[in-house]
Amino acid sequence: MSRATGMRYRRRRVTDVVAKVLGTGATLFGLFWLAWILLVTLGNGIHALTPRIFTETTPPPGGDGGLANALFGSLEMSLLGVLLGAPLGIAAGTYLSEFAERRPAWRETIRFVNDILLSAPSIVLGLFVYTLAVRTVGHFSGWAGALALALIVLPVVVRTTDETLRLVPNIMREAALSLGVPRWKVTVQVLYRAAAPGILTGVLLGLARISGETAPLLFTSLNNQYWAPNLNAPTASVPVVIFQFAMSPYENWHALAWAGAFIVTVFILILSVGTRAYLLRNRVEAAS
């Protein structure tokens, strides 16, 4: 081997090693932030967590209290958002996967638009619902908040339903149709059963996504210091309360914000890790 070839070989080896080190470093960099954020949130949150969080409503400035009204409001609006968004999403996803074969251009347009909606800034959807359901009615309300959250759930469920149904083998459709079963029954009783784990995953991912959403609620449900289970009034939610309290100068408000952050983060972690494990198990079972 000549001297020049040797040098060149060395340089290629060094570049390769440097790239591998940098790649590993980038991964550690990503994991470092994850660990830091989780440690800070969970560490500060656990200290702020008291039974009063669940029994008392949000306090006036400087006072003591809990997050009961915000927790209830979040629960109400998130569940309503899922109840509203998920069926629509499943229906739209089913259309894309099963019933659009005669209109491929229309199908691709909707898929394209849905993908954009999936990544669109949630603040924009909040403003949309504000002009649609707050300005026209004249006051902020929990219903408007739930509607905004439903619009965030919708594209998530459309996408997962569409993708999961496309994975169902054609032989199942053909077997059912050859028995003379009408298509709607094939869809509901055969395809949905086969695709249930995937669709459920989509719904849960949608729920995980909206349970921390803040921006769209600022313009729709706003906030409410008092216990107000009536959705026709401004409704408190954990993320909005976190925003308001974290930005305030009061120490005990900060503590409540951390407690809220803890609850939201743990809920989302359980949902996303749980869904992943559930999906993994179902995939393994389907394969074996």
Binding site: L31, W33, A208, E213, T214, A246, A257, V264, I268
Partner: peptide, 24 residues
């Protein structure tokens, strides 16, 4: 596991990033 952990970063809500950002 590493891929899933990195994806968890996407699951953390924006408001948590904000609080962590402001206080830490």
């Amino acid at each position: 596991p590493v891929g899933a952990s990195i994806e968890l970063l996407a699951g953390i809500p924006s408001i948590i990033y904000g609080m962590w950002g402001l206080f830490s």
